[in-house]
Amino acid sequence: MMQLKPWYQLDGKVFRFKFGTENSEASRQAAQTCKQFSPDDEDEQIDDTLVSCYNCMNRRWLIDGVECIQFK
């Protein structure tokens, strides 16, 4: 979890991506650091660069953001 702290923060019980849903650059940087990155189905990917939290099986879309569930 520590490795992702620059990009994620605990928001109640949610480990939330700090940069919202439109910041591909930050999403890629975080995923490159993460040892648990695992790509979701190709049909569910939304970033053209594969290694990106937005493309990860462990991300969950929230109403207003993105959550990482790998530590749940």
Partner: peptide, 18 residues
């Protein structure tokens, strides 16, 4: 075709909701 549906805490879904 893949259709995106609402994501909300009250809706259980896998990694997306489509």
């Amino acid at each position: 075709t893949r259709h995106q549906l609402y994501v909300h805490p009250d809706i259980p879904y896998t990694s997306h909701n489509s």
